[in-house]
Structure formats: structure tokens, C-alpha cells
Design a protein around this nucleic acid. Structure first.
Lengths: 221, 221, 221, 221
DNA sequence: GATGAATGAGAATTCATTCAT
DNA sequence: GATGAATGAATTCTCATTCAT
């Protein structure tokens, strides 16, 4: 026939899994885990009901695979990348990390997945632990390392390390949550989701400002 | 307190609806919206399957009512309370607000509801708008007012108001999310949920520090 | 609340389980376990799809309940009954037992259930063990007791007790199997299912004949 | 014998079909008809999913072919063999038949197939008829012939021929059923499956004993 | 002949909701 | 007002079968 795709079966074994995961990612992010039907995933991937089951045991495994293939994979790449910028100052590193994160996660569908992960953590304890070990913990270690080095070098004033890490993370979490919950609802949040990156940078600056040594003598916090 | 809200709470001799909402709140927070069965709500409220339908049209209406009756109601009370502390400094007001929030929301089941609200916003757009109008917007206006006043008075250096509000809000959101998602999973987060209030206060201090005028000569207070 | 006033709908409730089990028994016997759809059971019981699940966890539990309520229950009744005929001879007891069995099991749908049990034993090991403990074992013990007593009294010649029990059981098993497998297929077995009871009695007579002492004294087998 | 059946078995250089049937036999016997997946059959035969369909229309046809090729074929061989022992006594013939049957059917996977056949007869009426015509009927005719001859010769006392045949068959059926149902379940039947052949021989002896003329004068033939 | 990706009808199970009592 | 038995739409998952390669 003249047309390429007119066969009932489009056989793309190698491409299928990632097509399915891609469709699933979008649907999970848009509608949540429970509200996403397997058949919807199949349809969005251009296949029929049964096909996803050829590649994944069940819905839960699809969800796990989506998390693994997107955030976890990206996280590892980011960690590796940041480890090469050893010479930069703490501020520079944190700014670089923020931009990197924004490019590869914050501004992508992955951000919606983070929100979903938070929403569903208690329903998938095993996955939550995995996510914690593979994403949250390494991310926090990386940030902790950078901040601690800054303190050691006198770039930052001493402060509770965990709290600083939380402080650096909170705006990112907020951005992801807001832009994938209220931000998606028409008529909510006209002034919140304007320019998330601007907020993130502003937040980072504010936090770094707070980490500077006061000029005159001040009590350490 | 005003007398206006009494009529609603005076008919407490008929406690059924609020008992149902109370049970629903706990279950929604613990298991999520979808995973909470109507029958579980009924049972937890000490009634039988059909009874909730005598007071609420359906599950969605119960969810909305829960949000309305808990967070929204609490939010309004908090707003009223804060409006009375007009003489305090911006820092003092923000610290007071934080403690108030922590006591009445952050440390209660309501915090779980906020997380749930974020998770389900896209599934209940109407409710999301309501929540945004009744909770998020007023809260931000309140914070915005306090911060703006601080800037006007020279207590804080000028900065993007929306970003500062986001900055003040992010740690609270983070606390709520984490403590009701990963924080509930055994084996996650050994170092995150340690002492949320300490983090919140530390974050506030850090942000306020960042809002101080830099050392160089600037306007006197 | 109280136990007293709810007669009408509760009577319905009480009747449901047995109605469902009754429908299930017939369908299981007719079509086998796998080929019997839950919806068919429901329909045969005059209810809709979901109703059986109000009373039984799942299809497997219905099957187990059917077995329990029919054969096991009947078996226990039979055992109790036979224990009262202590004075009769071995032959008399065995004939009585056969007739009893025929009346209450062999000629009823329960016989089909025995066949089904044999067919599905490996698919439900737990149920098979239960059935073995509650039905097969007691039945064999009962027969064993009667035969042993006959041997002790000199009514029967000595023989391997287990083999005799098998020998007494085999015709019953055969009758049940044949009449619920080939016997149900039109055009099979014109001469097999003629008169099962006649065969059973004939078989018993033949076996008892074989248990008589030969006239001349011969070696025990 | 005739040459007519050769063509089927001569094309054995193409072993595919029989390999598939062999695999199917084992799986059917082990897991039952329904629980045996086509893919499992293919895999056990060392081919892939689609291949069985090159040789058989569908699963049902495979089942039928298995029955045909195993039991039916073996049955015909046995019949032919027994027809050659014309000189022996009835007892001798029956003992020989039993041993033959035990060797080629009772102790092999075919026994499991008999059980399966009984279990599935109503689901495959056409196959049931075929099995009845090709297996059950000839077997009964053979036995009937031997027993009748024994009666005619005065070796056995007169009795209902069909009943005697049933009587001779029942232990074999029982052995096959038990050893492929409860006998396979761990924890069932410690004392049943001990030594099936011993039981079969014992049963035959007992039956033959019952067929002997009583010593004192009894009914004339 | 073989392959194995894809199909899609079908079955089990869940649970929000209704309504006769 | 309350009850709780019953409903039936909705959803997940299975597997015999097909057919392009």
C-alpha cells in the first residue's frame, strides 16, 4: 500500500516501552495515579489495552518505571555533572545547580512527577523509599556538601546544615507543587506561576544573602 | 469573637455532619481521596453506609465540606487574629503568624489536608478555585501587607513582593508536604522531619536576614 | 440498632448466602469451576453481579463454602448416623451406609461436587487438604472400622484393610465420576449409567463375597 | 495389521506436531486444561507462540489431538495384544490386562489424561463421545468378552456382565483419579497412594474371588 | 515455515450510590 | 432520620488468536 502506517499492528518492540512510559508520565502528571486508566495509557501510546502488559507487570510497575526513567535517571546525570565544577564558589555552584535543575526537571513534566510522588508516597512505600534513596538523599548530600564547603571556607556563616538544605529545597518543591496543582486550574493563581525561574533565583539570592556574614558584629543565629 | 458565625456552630446538638466531616478529614489525610471509601467514613463516624448521604450529596461534596470547614474556617480565624497586632514590627508579626499557623494548621491534620488539596487540585478545579480564593489568596495578602509595611518603614530592603511571599510560604508548604508524604513512610527521611518548627523558624530568620539592608550606608530605620 | 425489629430485610439477608451457594453448586457441577462465571452465579441466584461479593470474598471462597456446606456437612451427619448402628453385622452396616450415601450424596448434586473436587484438587491444595481431612479420611475411618470389626469377629476373612476400603470406595467414586462427566454427554454411555444404585449394590455384594472365608481353608491372600 | 495408519506416523521426520502434543500432554495433566496456556505449550515444545497454530487450529484441537494420540493409540495397541492370548483362563487374561494397562497407561502421564478427560468431558462433548467410542467402549467390550467367556466355561459364576465390567474398571479409575488429584497435594492421602499396583491386583483378586462359585451348591447358571 | 508483537473480548472485583424498610 | 442490602458502572488484568515480517 502507499501508506506507511495502515497495518493494524505497528511493530516497534524497542520503542514501545518508552512510548508507554512517556504516555503514562503525561497522564499521571495530568490526572494523578488513580485517575489514570490503563486503557488511557495504552491509547495515548497508540496501542490497545493489552499491550502495556507485554512490557510491564501492572500499573504500579509502570508508575515505578516512569519515576525511575525520568527523575532518578536525570538526578544521577545532574549529580555527575555537578561534581565536575569543583573550583567554583558555593554561590556559583548553587546557581549553576539551580539552573541545571530548572532546565532538566523544574521546567519539564518531571516536575509534575515529583508532585505526584509526594502525593502518592504513602500509597507506594517501597517506591517512596526508593525515591528517597535515589533522589532526595543524593540531592541533599550534594547541596549539603556545597554549603558545608562554603562554611568551611568562610564564604557562608555557620548555620544548621539541614535547615539550609531544606531552605534551598523548599522553593523548588513549592514551584513544582504549585505549577502542577493550582497552577493548572484556570482561574487560580494569576500571580503565582508567572515566572517560576525568577522566583527560584530570587529565593536563592535571598537565602544566600541570609548566609552572608553580617558586616558589623552580630550574634550568630 | 464576632457573633455572626454562631448560628452555624450553635446547632451543634446535631453533631452528625461534623462527626462525618471529622472522620472524613482523618481518612482523607491518611489514605488520600480516592482510597477513602464512603463506608469507611461512615464507620469512622459511627454511622452506617447510607447516613452520610443524608447530609451530603456525594463524596466530592464531603471533600469540599471538609476543606471548607477546616482550613478555610481556620484561615479566617487566623486572619482576624493577626489584624489585631497592628503595632508590632514586621519580623515580630511574621514570627507570630508562623507560630499561630504552626499551632492551628502546620501541626494538625489540616496540614495533611493542604497536601491533599495540592494533590487533588486538578481533579476538583472548582474546589481548587474556592481554596485559592479563600485560603491562598487571603494568606498571601496578609503576608504581603506585613512585608510591604516593613519595606515602607525601612525595616526590610526593597524586593519583589510576590517572591518574598513565596519565600515565606515555601517552607510551610514543604513541611506540610514532607511530613504527610515521605515523612510517613518508615525508612524514609531520617533527617528531614526531625523538628519542623525549628526548621520553619530557622527559615524565617534566614529570610528576614536576607531582607535586611546590606552593611553599606542606607536609610536609617 | 437492636436485634429485634429488623425481621424482613434480615430474612432476605439470611437467605442470600445459601441461595448463592445453591446457584453456585449447580453451576460448578454443570460447567466446572473455571467455566462458571461469577455473574452467572449471581444471575442464577436472582441477584446482580456485585451481590455475591457482599457475602463471600471471592469465587474461590464461594467454591470452598459450597464444598463445606454440602459434602462436608452431609458427611458429618452420615458419620453420626452410622455410629448408632453398632449391633448390626458388617454386611448390614455396609449396605446401610451405601444406601444412606446414595440417598444423600450419590444421587444428588453433591456427587457432581465430588467429581469437581477431584478435578480441581491440585488447583486448590488448601481446599483439597480440608476435603481430605473432613470427608475422605473420616469416611475411610468409618469403613475401616466396620471392616476391621468384621474381620475380628470372623465375619470377613483377613485382608489388607486399606485395599478393602479402596475396593469399597471405588465403585462410588466411579459412579459419581461417570454420571457427572460422560454420563452427561448425550450419545455417550448408553449402558453405563443405567442404574447406578444397582451397580453399587452389586459391587458391594461382589466385594463382600470376596471377603467371605473360602469353604475349604485357604491361605489368606 | 493393516497398512492404513502408516502415513500418519511415517512423516515423523517432521517431529514438530508430536513435540507440541507431548508438551501439551504434560502441561494439561499437570495444570488442567484451562490453566494451561498456549504459550506454555509452545515454550515447553521449544517453539514460539505462533507455531502451534501452524499445526493445530486452536487449543481445543490440541487437547483432542493429545487424547487421540496418547490414550486412543495406546488402547488400540493393547486391544490387539490381548486378542492374541486366546488360550489363557479368564483370571490369567484379566491379570495380564491389568499389568499391561498399568505399564502403558496407569503408571504414565496417560493416567492423568484420563482424569482430565473425565473432568472436562462436559466441556468437550464431541471429544467425550470420541473418547467413549474409541477408548471406553472397546475396553469394556474386551473385558466383557473375557468375563463372558469365563462364565460360559464355568470359570466364573453368572453375574450381571455390565456390573462386573464396572467392578473391574472402578479400581483403575480410582487409582488414576486419586493419584492425579489428591495424591498430588502435599499433606493429603498419606495412605492412599502408597502402592497403586498392589491395590489394583488386590482388587482384581477380590473381585475374582467374588466371581468364584461358592463351595456349596448355588444357583445354577 | 517461524516468529512474536499486538490485539481485544472477557472475567473478576470494587465501591459510590440508591431505596425499601 | 437511619439502615444496610442491593445495584451496576467502571477498572484491572488475562490470554487465545492473528498476521506482518
Amino acid at each position: 500500500m502507499g501508506e506507511s502506517g495502515n497495518s493494524r499492528w505497528q511493530r516497534k518492540k524497542d520503542a514501545r516501552p518508552s512510548e508507554i512510559l512517556d504516555a503514562a508520565l503525561t497522564l499521571f502528571v495530568d490526572k494523578g495515579y488513580r485517575a489514570t486508566k490503563m486503557e488511557d495509557i495504552a491509547q495515548a501510546a497508540g496501542v490497545t489495552k493489552g499491550t502495556p502488559y507485554l512490557y510491564f507487570q501492572n500499573k504500579e510497575e509502570i508508575f515505578k518505571a516512569v519515576v525511575r526513567e525520568t527523575i532518578v535517571a536525570r538526578m544521577q546525570a545532574m549529580s555527575a555533572q555537578l561534581e565536575q565544577l569543583q573550583d567554583a564558589s558555593g554561590s556559583q555552584l548553587l546557581h549553576a545547580a539551580l539552573e541545571d535543575w530548572w532546565t532538566h526537571i523544574g521546567a519539564t513534566r518531571s516536575a509534575g512527577l515529583c508532585k505526584l510522588m509526594a502525593a502518592e508516597a504513602t500509597n507506594f512505600p517501597e517506591l517512596a523509599r526508593f525515591y528517597y534513596e535515589e533522589v532526595i538523599k543524593p540531592a541533599r548530600q550534594l547541596l549539603g556538601y556545597v554549603v558545608q564547603r562554603g562554611m568551611d571556607r568562610g564564604e557562608f556563616r555557620p548555620a544548621n546544615l539541614e535547615h539550609v538544605i531544606d531552605m534551598l529545597t523548599a522553593p523548588m518543591l513549592m514551584t513544582m507543587i504549585m505549577s502542577h496543582s493550582f497552577g493548572l486550574v484556570p482561574g487560580c493563581c494569576e500571580n503565582i506561576t508567572r515566572d517560576p525561574l525568577a522566583f527560584l533565583q530570587s529565593a536563592l539570592r535571598l537565602t544566600l544573602q541570609g548566609l552572608q556574614y553580617p558586616v558589623s558584629q552580630d550574634l550568630p543565629s
